Simulated assay, not measured.
Amino acid sequence: MHRLPVLALTTGEPAGVGPELAAAISGQCGKARLVLLGDRALLAERAAAVGVDADWPDYRAGDQAPVSVLHLPLAAPCVAGTLDPANARYVLDLLDRAIDGAQAGEFDAIVTAPLHKGVINDGIGGPFFYGHTEYLAERTGTEQVVMMLAGGGLRVALATTHLPLKDVPAAITFESLSKALRILHADLQTKFGLARPRILVAGLNPHAGESGHLGREEIDVIIPVLDALRAEGMTLIGPLPADTLFNRKQLDQGDAVLAMYHDQGLPVLKFASFGEGINITLGLPVIRTSVDHGTALDLAGSGRADPGSLAAAIDLAAELSRHRG
């Protein structure tokens, strides 16, 4: 019998839905051992909101409990739906403990519930916090990572992430695009078990630049990158006009899409899978998956939040852990 992977589940912003989603999902996962990182009293309170008995044991490395709690205390009392910058450091402490454990081999993967970037920045006083993806990269010493969302039969990765639209063209360089494609290709092989992944690459401009009449980024950067990496043996299709890329006939030719910017690729994926999508950070030395939604402060404490995306993130983290052996 194979050992079940051990997943560190960070419960995220305490005023949001993360703690109760973690509680709701705790009795439904038979594919992994879950370690819930968070304040035990907070988790018990939110478990009551979803009708779950919070009788989880304390986490001990190497134990066999299907669900356990690694208690990290809140800095200040928490009210569901009400953000408090005093707990910003608490949220990062959860992440730090999960990262340290994953890097040490204590955890096979990290699954993250949503956090709130604004309140973290209000509470920590700098350096600026951009989000889970960037924080994980910095804490693991990873120079470049790639955000990929999966769901609805799609895998969509991003060449750039949380940038103003006006800054996107300058961020797409020969070096950065080459590295993003190498990361995507390598992780599709090692984490998803695809021996020869096929990647559909979107153009940046309308109609993929229309031979330079609608922009030269395809001619000057994207096509040279694709030609260079094809010469190394990668299967890359494109650059493709983004307005016609997301049709079934086209998608059937690839295993993943690389979009050039956040709102080029993700609206389609979220339309296809909202509530059950998964965020995966590629290029890290550890496995990390996450929900595809935010803190949903208006639902926090109500017991009405849908755990579907978190369940999918847990299932994928367990699957990726098995691929890595």
Rank of each mutant, 00 (worst) to 15 (best):
D63H: 13
Q64F: 07
H71F: 06
L72V: 14
L72F: 04
L72C: 07
L74M: 04
A76V: 05
A76I: 05
P77S: 07
V79C: 08
A80H: 07
A80W: 06
A80I: 06
G81A: 07
G81T: 07
T82E: 12
T82Q: 12
L83D: 02
L83T: 08
L83Y: 06
D84M: 04
P85S: 06
N87C: 06
N87H: 05
R89W: 01
V91D: 00
D93V: 02
R97Y: 05
I99E: 02
D100H: 05
D100W: 03
G101W: 02
G101D: 03
G101S: 06
A104F: 01
G105C: 11
A109C: 06
I110P: 00
I110M: 03
V111E: 01
T112I: 01
A113I: 06
P114W: 03
L115Y: 01
L115H: 00
K117M: 10
V119F: 07
I120D: 02
I120C: 10
N121A: 09
D122P: 05
G123C: 06
I124T: 15
F128T: 14
Y130Q: 14
G131Y: 11
T133H: 11
E134W: 13
Y135A: 15
A137E: 14
E138W: 09
E138M: 13
R139M: 05
G141A: 11
T142Q: 14
V145A: 15
V145W: 00
V145I: 15
V145D: 02
V146H: 05
M147I: 09
M148P: 08
L149P: 08
L149T: 09
A150I: 11
A150E: 15
G153V: 09
L154Q: 13
V156C: 12
A157Q: 05
L158M: 12
L158E: 12
L158Y: 06
A159N: 10
T160K: 13
T161H: 12
T161W: 08
H162N: 04
H162M: 08
L163C: 10
K166Y: 09
D167E: 15
D167C: 10
D167P: 08
V168Q: 12
A171G: 09
E175Q: 15
